[in-house]
Amino acid sequence: MSGNGNAAATAEENSPKMRVIRVGTRKSQLARIQTDSVVATLKASYPGLQFEIIAMSTTGDKILDTALSKIGEKSLFTKELEHALEKNEVDLVVHSLKDLPTVLPPGFTIGAICKRENPHDAVVFHPKFVGKTLETLPEKSVVGTSSLRRAAQLQRKFPHLEFRSIRGNLNTRLRKLDEQQEFSAIILATAGLQRMGWHNRVGQILHPEECMYAVGQGALGVEVRAKDQDILDLVGVLHDPETLLRCIAERAFLRHLEGGCSVPVAVHTAMKDGQLYLTGGVWSLDGSDSIQETMQATIHVPAQHEDGPEDDPQLVGITARNIPRGPQLAAQNLGISLANLLLSKGAKNILDVARQLNDAH
């Protein structure tokens, strides 16, 4: 009898209710805020589980004197976190989706994509230029951005401005803007500013005609071990179906173009009346040469937790077992079709030249 009692006690200790789920994140304040929001949602869904947040620095956090596009290494903000995932030191990792490459290392998958916040870019102005827009900034004003995508589009749109690289986390960039006289304004992701509670610093939100956004911008991705079915089931509740389908289309477009950090590629997606609209573009580094096109596809946005595919093969690095396969494939095909259209119009040449120029500098 006593033996059975011990077995029952052991089973209770090993039951999922007692389990601590370890969540990996970057150390920056924004990353911690984003991770806290994901953990809060998981806690609400699984009140019996405990969650421990483990923060670590990544290569991208450490190399702050070089433009991201020049470092010449993929997975700048993800490699150390993936290493911890691989060694079973954490069970899942919360990322900004735009930091996750469209091809993940073997053994990993994006197990959830959370509801997207505003994906557009924002302009934050130096205190002396508050009330201005990019259009009304004085001639030769210097605007800071760490992104080739932003610089290429904005140089084309605002030729009277000069664009220079600015690195560091959000706090560091804002301090550089406010305390030094080098920059009249800087460009940042609206979602990051909003998550930090800095709505009052948003001086201008850039519309798609001015600057399309990065693939996955404004959404959070939760990376897990691809074979860890328990954790895949656990994080599945975080999937937002519309965000998922938009981001599958965007990531398929980028992957098929073979774009990345070192080339200016941008997108804009919208879901309306059962249609998914995808606009994508590529630019030369100075913005003088560009190709942009829009395509659409009829896609039914499923309700969360309709029964999805059981075999769960990944699409552009994403596993969404609780979302039907048909809409996911339709979104992926839309991204591939748009990429093929741009490639047929000469996108590869623009991107190759951009890559060579970026590598040469």
Rank of each mutant, 00 (worst) to 15 (best):
R19K: 13
R22E: 10
G24D: 00
R26V: 01
R26Y: 01
K27S: 12
K27C: 12
S28W: 00
Q29K: 12
L30I: 02
Q34L: 05
V39A: 12
T41E: 12
K43G: 09
A44H: 10
A44V: 13
S45K: 15
Y46S: 08
L49C: 00
Q50E: 15
F51Q: 06
I53N: 06
I54T: 09
M56W: 08
S57M: 01
S57Y: 09
T58Y: 00
T59D: 14
G60H: 02
L68Y: 10
L68Q: 06
K70M: 14
S75V: 06
L76P: 10
T78S: 08
T78Q: 09
T78P: 02
K79Q: 11
E80N: 06
E80T: 09
L81F: 12
E82I: 02
E82D: 10
L85E: 03
K87P: 02
N88M: 12
E89L: 11
E89V: 11
V90R: 01
V90C: 10
L92A: 10
V93T: 06
V93S: 05
V93N: 08
S96Q: 00
L97T: 15
K98W: 00
L100W: 05
L100M: 09
L100R: 00
P101D: 02
V103G: 11
L104M: 13
P105C: 05
P105I: 07
P106V: 14
T109E: 04
G111Q: 02
A112P: 05
I113Y: 03
C114S: 12
K115F: 10
E117V: 14
N118H: 12
P119R: 04
P119D: 04
P119S: 10
A122T: 09
A122N: 10
V123G: 07
V124L: 10
V124A: 11
V124F: 06
H126F: 08
F129Q: 13
G131T: 08
K132R: 11
K132C: 11
T133P: 06
L134I: 08
L134A: 07
L134C: 07
T136F: 08
L137V: 11
P138F: 07
E139F: 14
K140M: 10
K140I: 07
T145C: 06
T145L: 08
S146L: 04
S146M: 07
S146V: 08
S147V: 03
S147C: 05
R149E: 02
A151S: 09
L154N: 04
Q155V: 10
P159R: 10
H160Q: 13
L161K: 08
F163L: 14
F163M: 11
F163H: 10
S165Q: 12
S165D: 03
I166W: 12
R167A: 10
L170E: 07
N171G: 11
T172P: 04
T172D: 03
T172G: 10
K176F: 13
K176V: 11
K176R: 11
L177Y: 00
D178F: 06
D178V: 10
Q180L: 12
Q181T: 13
I186V: 11
I187C: 06
G192F: 00
Q194S: 04
Q194N: 06
Q194L: 10
Q194K: 13
Q194D: 10
R195H: 09
H199R: 11
H199K: 14
N200H: 14
R201S: 05
R201E: 00
V202Q: 06
Q204H: 12
L206R: 03
H207V: 10
P208T: 08
P208V: 06
E209W: 01
E209S: 05
C211L: 10
M212A: 02
M212L: 14
Y213T: 02
Y213V: 02
G216T: 02
Q217T: 02
G218E: 03
E223N: 11
V224R: 03
V224T: 15
V224H: 00
R225G: 05
R225A: 03
D228R: 13
D228E: 15
D230C: 03
D230H: 03
D230N: 11
I231N: 08
L232Y: 05
L232T: 12
D233M: 07
L234W: 11
V235T: 02
V237F: 07
L238E: 03
L238N: 00
H239L: 05
D240G: 02
E242D: 12
T243A: 02
L244Q: 15
R246C: 05
I248A: 03
I248F: 11
A249N: 00
E250H: 02
R251Q: 00
R251C: 03
R251L: 01
F253L: 09
F253M: 14
H256R: 11
L257M: 12
G259T: 13
G259K: 14
C261S: 01
S262A: 15
V263H: 02
H268G: 01
H268D: 10
H268R: 15
T269N: 06
K272S: 14
Y277I: 07
L278Y: 01
G280L: 03
G281H: 05
V282D: 04
V282E: 01
W283K: 02
L285A: 13
G287W: 02
G287Y: 05
G287K: 01
S288R: 03
S288I: 14
E293V: 07
E293R: 09
T294H: 15
A297E: 05
A297D: 11
I299W: 05
I299K: 05
H300T: 14
V301D: 12
P302A: 12
A303E: 10
Q304N: 15
H305R: 06
D307I: 03
G308V: 13
G308L: 11
P309T: 07
E310H: 15
E310I: 03
L315Q: 03
G317P: 11
I318D: 04
I318N: 05
T319F: 11
A320M: 05
A320E: 11
N322E: 13
N322Q: 10
I323K: 03
R325G: 14
R325E: 11
G326W: 10
L329S: 12
A330L: 13
A330S: 07
A331G: 15
L334Q: 01
L334Y: 05
S337M: 05
L338R: 03
L338Y: 00
N340T: 10
N340I: 15
N340M: 15
L342W: 03
L343E: 07
S344Y: 07
G346S: 03
A347M: 05
K348L: 14
N349L: 13
I350H: 15
D352P: 14
V353P: 08
V353S: 09
Q356H: 14
L357R: 14
A360Q: 01
